[in-house]
Design a protein around this nucleic acid. Structure first.
Lengths: 224, 224
DNA sequence: TCAAAAGTGTTCAGGATACACCCATGC
DNA sequence: GCATGGGTGTATCCTGAACACTTTTGA
């Protein structure tokens, strides 16, 4: 196509919806914006994607810079979520925002000049832009994927009990599951194996420890 | 974030994967590129997205300009497919491509200076860039959505027989379905209703005509 | 009367759901 | 010995899959 005026691209931004489960609650990574616009308001972490940098690389750089964590190292899984046109959304004018969804476990946030937090999705503060909708959308995607993939691997430590795994499923789905049916189902999916070790710390019968067979996303035929 | 140099955004492009079913075959809209790069090679229609225009608006404009059809009028359904980083893909350098998936029926292509075609996906020519992969991805998404939504509405005329509907499902899924099971299933989904009219043109028993209850995407609980 | 597509039911197997008690350990 | 979570099996229902013949029309 020909343009009379030189081609000018819209501003491109990338944002992260970073999840982990803490104390049986699904939490999402947010920060209190130190700068305008929406200074002082909580929002998803994100920033500008300049020419010459892929969206994943830009996100990696921005999260390292703004949150001081490393996406590849600290999150176990990442996928692209959706691309939003922000004509009406962003007071700075037209921009396009590519959003990513990431899942991890036991991520510690370094303390910074401004607040960052993994906040339970049931207790989120007011958020800038339409970030609350984006988190909802990511949560729906995540709950759906739980039913037909092994994505739970990204939330679990290397060794875990079936009860701990069930608790993660319940946190992500937002509902209770039957213990016997959960065990039958998860074992029939052939995505985890017993490690042979037992967890003996507690004042009750020791639990068998399991591990995920794969640390990459796989689809399963069985569903919940 | 601060930048030493002024912020420069990557080139933003939009591409369309446009589907319709012709003679029981799933077909996709491609054109023979009149310009470099890849001049003379078949590719998905697409173009540049300048600042100030949403990706959907840019796509609308580009398809009207390049194919002389109107997305809103000629396609019955459109959704965003995926956003690709094209660092390695595009010989012109770094670009970000937002792709859309659209579905329609009985779309007639006006003749132009260069070739455009709804080509059966089983008989696609060599395509520019990684457009063949993008079409595969779109096809998978479509087949998945067929199982848990009413998306077939976008491929069907206002009135149709159950056999015609089954043929569309078979074209999209790439496999044959059992007639009795299909009818039980589709009727249990409560997404179509008999119109009361019959199709009597042919040399066999007349068929009941059905219509979709809704012309927007809905999810169904029942699946195939 | 024949060709061609429309229309219709049953059986079977496997998965989903609901549900309650005994087991092994630390204190 | 008791509190705590670990671990297990069965009965029922529902859904998915396989499968063949009769009906109605136009030519």
């Amino acid at each position: 196509m020909q343009y009379e005026t030189p081609y000018a691209a819209p501003t491109l931004t990338v944002d992260l919806v970073g999840f982990q489960v803490i104390h049986g609650e699904l939490c999402v990574l947010i920060l209190k914006r130190p700068n305008e616009p929406f200074s002082g308001t909580w929002a998803l972490p994100g920033g500008y994607n300049p020419e010459g940098e892929t969206t994943e690389a830009a996100l990696q750089r921005i999260i390292r810079h703004k949150i001081s964590i490393d996406i590849d190292k600290d999150f176990s899984y990442i996928e692209q979520l959706y691309t939003f046109d922000t004509v009406a959304r962003d007071p700075r004018g037209h921009a396009v925002a590519v959003t990513y969804l990431a899942c991890g476990r036991a991520i510690e946030l370094p303390s910074l000049d401004y607040e960052t937090s993994f906040t339970p999705i049931v207790a989120l503060p007011e958020l800038a832009y339409d970030h609350a909708d984006i988190i909802d959308y990511a949560h729906k995607r995540l709950a759906a994927k739980l039913l037909y993939t092994n994505i739970a691997f990204a939330f679990m430590p290397p060794k875990f009990t079936l009860t701990e795994l069930q608790s993660t499923y319940e946190a992500l789905l937002g509902r209770k599951l039957d213990k016997r049916n959960f065990r039958k189902k998860i074992l029939s999916q052939d995505i985890i194996s017993p490690s042979g070790e037992l967890r003996t710390e507690a004042a009750h019968r020791p639990a068998q420890l399991y591990q995920f067979d794969h640390q990459e996303l796989r689809e399963v035929t069985e569903t919940f």
